[in-house]
Design a protein around this nucleic acid. Structure first.
Length: 567
RNA sequence: GCGCCGGUGGUGUAGCCUGGUAUCACUCUGGCCUUCCAAGCCAGCGACCCGGGUUCAAAUCCCGGCCGGCGCACCA
């Protein structure tokens, strides 16, 4: 039995993780969180909120998990989140088109279009490897789950493949919420869906999984971070792209140096690498089993300029990607702006500059009488002119005494005295920019598995989960040492008192005391309270700490304070 | 999705080859006992992955599916 098996076995037996739909045979890629798993997951997510929402001043939003076609079209998922497949016309079996070609004629199909793949199959007369039948057209298999919105299936929807898009499309609302000041950070925590071809490795690769994503919007010209100097001496373990290419290993380096040497592109990414490390270590990931690996040039998304994965070491799977930290630039906002027609930018105050420009107003007394209803149209036209166009117009008017404006197919003759032209000096305080977005994206399910594995401790005579008290699903077990002399009643009352003080506690009086300790240890209960003979005399109980097994006598009336201090 | 291997109470298993409804241990539940780390005693709950075929009869043989493991592929 390897460690993975031991951990999953424990998780299943004790109610952390279960295969979904088990009584119907199960479906790969789906897992249920049982009672303890759910508590643990919520505790982790709350820690995430503490670290990013409270301490960083980010805010959380929650958007739908079903998204209309347009959103995913704009994000590129409809077109690019796909594999090319081809179906046999005879036996209806599906194959990866690119692989079929590579196998049959041994050429590289990287980057070829569907059409091209189709042509190759026709030209080379590639046939079904199973039955020899003719192959159909090459199609895309999209890894998104498709659904219909509303009756009649008129609108196509998809289950979101990432939570990020929900944030991007709220950009206008969000920038207003943050009073139009960069930088700002937005969090979304929730389910995402990918119809994986062959999900395996338990909870590591799921079709429905929980992401906690941050989109941190920054001025493209300002990728420094105000808190970087506080953390720049922190040493991190990095595996830069260059080292991977040259077969070199990891480096231990301060963030300051990594940014200075341009291993890490800029301070913001550096800062999030620090925050990610802090969060993971705070919840109990083993620091020795954590590293940050930079994406290689051929694996990084084309729109990203730097990307680092927090990788966590597991005994069975080796290093697995649990967090991705990417600078996605303005790709998403630009794309949504283009497709939606909304301006997704923000005004950034910059250096004060004095510029000369013209102000043009209509001389309404004259113009109004002449153009009547069309006046408004001319007014709008003039307002929208750029500085350059204004200058051209004014010059022309000077030279030719009149100009003809053509607006919406109508022609208007404008004379010099129709306009009031003023040359003014204006102070410009900034410009409109499309923010860049730095995205740390956490795979919560993977992190939970790694956390369980790293904190699964085997001793000669017991197994325990070394969960931090604040993360442990159940905080306290309460036992009567023996089931007589009122001890069960006292223990039950203590359990009740703990629960009334918001401490999750369980009562257990079955079997011998050792067995109860064992059961509690196995699910990571940090404290066990035992009511014994002495309790009857002086109202004290023993509090036993999970890892050390050491006991301390505490007065019942002080129990709540005692525990709250440690949780 | 391909190839190989596997699937029996909650867990680990015996039985499968050579067809006749299932072994043992642990866990779990209730009780007794027990004054601090899986003690003991009594009683109890609990399983042949699903579907089809062969057969008087299928956990057992055959086929398909599902799930799991490994290898390949995939992982924007």
């Amino acid at each position: 039995m390897d460690k993975y098996e031991k951990v999953i076995d424990l998780a299943k037996r004790r109610g952390f993780l279960w295969n979904s739909f088990e009584i119907y045979g199960g479906i790969a890629g789906f897992y249920d969180y049982g009672p303890l798993g759910c508590l643990l997951k919520n505790n982790i997510i709350n820690k995430f909120r503490e670290e990013f929402l409270i301490k960083e001043g980010f805010y959380e939003i929650e958007s739908p998990t079903i998204m209309p076609y347009e959103v995913l079209k704009a994000s590129g998922h409809v077109d690019n989140f796909t594999d090319p497949i081809v179906e046999c016309k005879n036996c209806l079996e599906s194959f990866r088109a690119d692989h079929l070609i590579e196998e049959s004629i041994n050429i590289d199909t990287e980057g070829l279009s569907l059409k091209k793949l189709d042509e190759i199959i026709k030209k080379e007369n590639i046939r079904c490897p199973k039955c020899g039948g003719e192959l159909g057209e090459v199609k895309r298999f999209n890894l998104m789950f498709v659904t219909n919105i509303g009756p009649g299936g008129k609108r196509t929807g998809y289950l979101r493949p990432e939570t990020a898009q929900g944030i991007f499309i709220l950009f206008k609302r969000l920038s207003q919420f943050f009073r139009n000041k960069l930088p700002f950070g937005v969090i979304q925590i929730g389910k995402s869906y990918r119809n994986e071809i062959s999900p395996r490795q338990g909870v590591i690769r799921l079709r429905e999984f929980t992401q906690a994503e941050i989109e941190y919007f920054v001025n493209p010209k300002e990728k420094r971070h105000e808190k970087f100097k506080n953390i720049e001496d922190e040493i991190v373990r990095l595996l830069p792209a260059e080292n991977q290419i040259n077969g070199l290993g990891e480096v231990e380096i301060t963030l300051k140096e990594a940014v200075k040497k341009e291993i890490i592109k800029h301070e913001v990414i550096g800062y999030f690498i620090y925050k990610t490390k802090k969060f993971l270590i705070d919840i109990g990931i083993d620091e020795k089993k954590l590293r940050f690996r930079q994406h290689l040039p051929d694996e990084i998304a084309h729109y990203a300029i730097d990307c680092w994965d927090a990788e966590i070491y597991t005994e069975r799977f080796g290093w697995i990607e649990c967090v991705g930290i990417a600078d996605r630039t303005d790709y998403d906002l630009k794309s949504h702006s283009l497709h939606s027609g909304e301006q997704l930018d923000i005004f950034v105050e910059g250096e004060e500059k004095e510029v000369e420009c013209y102000e043009i107003e209509l001389n309404y007394k004259i113009v109004g009488k002449i153009f009547k209803k069309d006046t408004k149209m001319i007014e709008n036209y003039i307002k929208k002119l750029s500085e350059e166009d204004k200058e051209n117009l004014i010059n022309k008017l000077e030279n030719e005494e009149k100009i003809i404006l053509e607006i919406d197919g109508k022609k208007f003759e404008i004379l010099k005295d129709y306009l009031k032209i003023k040359k003014v000096k204006k102070v410009i305080k900034g410009e409109k920019v499309i923010p860049h977005v730095i995205e740390p994206s956490f795979g919560i399910d993977r992190i939970i598995y790694c956390l369980l594995e790293h904190n699964f401790v085997e001793e000669e005579d017991r197994v325990y989960l070394n969960l931090k008290p604040y993360l442990a699903p159940i905080k306290v077990y309460v036992f009567p040492l023996v089931n007589r002399e009122n001890m069960p009643e006292i223990a039950k009352n203590i359990t009740k008192m703990l629960r009334e003080n918001n401490i999750i506690a369980e009562y257990d009086d079955s079997g011998a005391i050792g067995r109860r300790y064992y059961r509690a240890d196995e699910i990571g209960v940090p404290f066990c309270i035992t009511v014994d003979g002495q309790t009857l005399k002086d109202n004290t109980v023993t509090v036993r700490e999970r890892n050390t097994k050491k006991q301390e006598r505490v007065k019942i009336e002080n129990i709540i304070d005692y525990l709250k201090e440690k949780l």
